[in-house]
Design a protein around this nucleic acid. Structure first.
Lengths: 195, 195
DNA sequence: CCATGGATTAAACAAATGATTAAATCATTT
DNA sequence: AAATGATTTAATCATTTGTTTAATCCATGG
């Protein structure tokens, strides 16, 4: 594979550190060292730490929304397929990027404006489609609760991984199995909850 | 009521800022200003920013565990009572301290050692009791999944509040109603899931 | 072959930040 | 009221941190 351009090396290093440690705890010199570039190049390419950060947030949030929005708002995909596909895709994506949920949720709290336009599509397109499909499936739950329950059941294990692992509920090496087992049951759980 | 001592004023201000913005983003001068005390007093009473931080983490984590451990490990409390009481207490506590879940989970990821002894009791006492009660209730779920599902259904709304609100699923002013409605259904959901 | 312009580097700067100091003040005891 | 110890203050220190500058490298086109 091609060697990374300087710009790509910086984004990659910044993404790793920002998602792991947050904005304030990540120092520009650390990013430069991780990316193996001179400190000044960071400002040369991205202008400032803040602009680099926004780039990283945009990339990572995009990655999460790409998984969800097209599936949820597609009328041709059944509700079950949606739940199964989203559970599958998210579980896989989050296993590869375990730090993502907390990073995004944290960021969403601090920096709300940044997210408004990025998530406009979800608001606009997905809600009416889901509403219709819930009725067709005889589910009496609101769209709000449906999506909250779905995300809750998929993502919470990742958000609370440190709690789950260090409290001894699940061994570190068993975590992937744990979430993969849960993933399989999510449609079953959703139907039971919203019988 | 008594006026706060200098020490209490510092803890209060530090707790507010640390939980809102995290360790690195919170500056000692901010804490001093928020507490309306001189900067040097912070080091006079707590030695350093780090020691003050650990004090804050200990207080806040303690607050969360106090709600859970005594209830979970009490053999005289039925499983339903446990779920209902924990859902009730957590929802109320978290509505008053909405920033707590993300702060604790974040902290748990970064600073795992700090939590090991604080959570020892939970590991030791709660697990066998719950195991027994699950059997008695004919629930075939593992203790792991049971607690993960319980916490998941209660806490996720708070963790994902920014996502839920800014995506338009729930209005800001309706959030308390939203979690209170969910709270009432948690035992029902838990029994359905683990029928 | 070298001149041009982007890419890269080392060094420096200014502001921010955690911590310390020494003096001043306050409260309590003698 | 004098003495003592605890508390508070303003000033300062040393380091870190984000950013900038000026010099140098290096590939490309004339």
């Amino acid at each position: 594979m091609e060697p990374l351009t300087t710009e790509q090396k910086i984004i990659k290093a910044a993404s790793k550190l920002f998602t792991q440690k947050g904005y304030a705890a990540t120092k520009t010199r650390e990013i430069a060292e991780e990316a193996d570039i001179n400190l000044a190049l960071l400002n040369y390419y991205f202008g400032s730490k803040e602009r680099l950060y926004k780039e990283v947030v945009k990339n990572n949030l995009g990655m999460l929304l790409e998984v969800m929005i097209p599936i949820l708002s597609d009328e041709k995909v059944s509700l079950k397929e949606k739940v199964v596909t989203i559970a599958e895709n998210y579980t896989q994506l989050l296993l590869e990027h375990e730090e993502l949920p907390i990073f995004i949720l944290n960021e969403w709290t601090v920096n709300e404006d940044l997210f408004v336009d990025i998530t406009r599509d979800a608001r606009l397109f997905a809600k009416p489609v889901i509403e219709k499909q819930l009725k067709e499936n005889g589910m009496e739950v609101s769209v709000d609760d449906f999506i909250a329950n779905l995300l809750s059941l998929i993502m919470f294990s990742f958000v609370a991984k440190p709690l789950i692992v260090s409290s001894g509920l699940v061994e570190e090496g068993e975590f992937a199995n744990f979430v993969n087992r849960r993933k399989e049951k999510i449609w079953e759980w959703m139907t039971k909850i919203n019988q």
